[in-house]
Simulated assay, not measured.
Amino acid sequence: MDVVSVVNGEAESWAEVLNRLRRAQGQLAAVITMIEAGRDRKDVVTQLAAVSHALDRAGFKIVAEGIRQCLTERQQGHVPPLSEAQLEKLFLSLA
Rank of each mutant, 00 (worst) to 15 (best):
C70G: 08
L71G: 04
M1P: 14
R23P: 01
E16P: 03
V7H: 01
V17M: 00
R39P: 02
N8Q: 15
L87S: 00
R23T: 05
S93K: 14
L21P: 00
E16W: 06
D2W: 00
M34P: 02
M34E: 06
L18D: 02
L92W: 15
S13C: 10
A95G: 12
A15E: 07
A24C: 04
E73Q: 09
D43E: 14
R39H: 10
V44C: 10
S5I: 02
S93L: 14
R41H: 13
V79A: 15
G9N: 05
H53I: 09
D43W: 05
N19Q: 11
V6S: 01
I35W: 07
S52P: 04
A30Y: 02
I62C: 01
A95F: 12
A95K: 15
G38W: 09
G38D: 08
P81I: 14
A24V: 03
R74T: 14
R57K: 11
I67D: 00
I62R: 00
A29Q: 12
A50G: 10
G38M: 05
M1V: 08
H53E: 11
E84N: 11
L28P: 02
R39N: 07
K61I: 10
R74K: 12
L48P: 07
I32T: 13
A24M: 03
A24F: 00
P80S: 09
L94Y: 00
A54L: 14
Q47A: 07
E16G: 11
Q76E: 13
E12K: 15
M1E: 07
V4G: 06
S13I: 04
G26D: 06
A95L: 14
A85P: 00
N8A: 11
L90A: 03
M34D: 06
V51L: 00
P80D: 06
A15Y: 05
V6G: 01
